[in-house]
Write a protein that binds this DNA or RNA. Structure first.
Lengths: 225, 225
DNA sequence: GTCTATACATGGATAGAC
DNA sequence: GTCTATCCATGTATAGAC
């Protein structure tokens, strides 16, 4: 009996480093979603991943490294997941519909909420600001492409900046996500109001030739050209 | 020399409790703005206020109590500060202008950013969720009043819900504030895009009688009535 | 109402064995 | 690549003197 093997708990779990990294990134997202930034510590993430705490620093250097990589990867996945859906959008209303579906699904999975968490923390942490902006820009790029396509040839084109609008949309989305976290009913009515606004903008797109000319000239004036 | 008075540092600063509370609430806002929620601890706030740390718990019970009261008070002050300005708003464009001025001023002072910080933390802290929603609703109420006034008698009235729209606007505003924290240039272009959008909505308000009738009928259809 | 001192928990990060 | 053990900083909160 002198040669009994050591207790399993003390045994080094032989596992590939890549796998450990995956586990840690997944656990980071989960923890961020369920407990917010303040509840996302090296210890809590490691516990969720069932990985030794010290491995975080071995693989990612520090917590900011882990947070950044986890968020980047998770956002890339979610954006890719919606890419097809974005590609089929043919009107502002449809874009809003996709937005609403996205909001509801991702709220349940908490992926946008994770971005919101990081965005909050990044306000006073320059190290986080970079990676967070990168992640958010993945969404911005998708939205911008859709908007540019939608407004092509539209009489509104001269007064619409797809790049700026995409940023506004993405930012507003994050704000709504945060708002939903403290007042779900209020957020619902906000989304309904935006649907109505989308329908309105659609009207402008579908005016007859006369009104179209009027809009065009006014738009030109408004654009200061 | 045996009867020298104690060093000033060890002397109890005789001060009214009300004054201490004020100092602590002010320091809380400052700290929240400059160091975020994660950097806003009992120690850091007390240091900024030059007040003994233990007094936080004496006066506010715990940190959530202090955070909540400080935020509520600060928001009330800022909302009151803009009340007159809101009252004179006569168009959507003017509302956006006020919004932009507010954004710039408050960004410098950091008051909206404070709300954003709390909103982030409130996502996973039910105790904070209540006070944060209350504070945000102070802004929502002001915006809602303006919107309701603006759309009175407008052909767009049937498809506009001022309450929902006000919530969307407030939430979007918070999102923009957070976005500005990680990408100032991007946020600037987003605000520009919104200005353009506001000008566009204004157009719809100023159509001639014919186009007005068209819009009205289409709006009615869109509203499903 | 304010102070000092302190108990106690949690977190980031590292050293060194395996 | 993984583990245990540990250092040290920071945070919340309380006790008890003044």
């Amino acid at each position: 009996m002198s040669d009994a093997e050591p207790p399993p708990a003390a045994r080094a779990k032989r596992r590939s480093g890549a796998r450990t990294r995956e586990l840690l990134m997944e656990a980071t997202i989960t923890t961020l979603r369920e407990h917010g930034v303040s509840g996302t510590s090296a210890r809590s993430v490691a516990a969720t991943a069932e990985v030794n705490q010290a491995l975080i620093f071995y693989h990612f250097g520090d917590m900011v490294g882990l947070l950044g990589q986890a968020c980047q990867q998770a956002t890339e996945q979610r954006v890719a997941h919606y890419r097809e859906e974005f590609a089929t959008v043919g009107s502002l209303q449809e874009l809003l519909e996709v937005g609403r579906r996205l909001h509801e699904r991702e709220r349940a999975e908490g992926n946008v909420a994770v971005l919101a968490q990081l965005l909050g923390a990044a306000q006073t942490d320059p190290a986080l600001a970079g990676v967070t902006a990168d992640a958010l820009n993945l969404w911005v790029a998708e939205i911008e492409a859709v908007l540019a396509r939608l407004f092509q040839g539209s009489p509104l084109a001269p007064v619409i900046d797809p790049a700026g609008l995409a940023r506004a949309v993405a930012a507003a989305f994050v704000g709504l996500e945060l708002y939903e976290g403290v007042d779900a009913a209020g957020a619902g009515s906000a989304l309904d109001a935006l649907d109505q606004l989308g329908a309105l903008l659609n009207l402008a797109e579908q005016l007859g030739p006369l009104a179209r000319r009027t809009v065009r000239s006014r738009v030109r004036k408004a654009a200061g050209k």
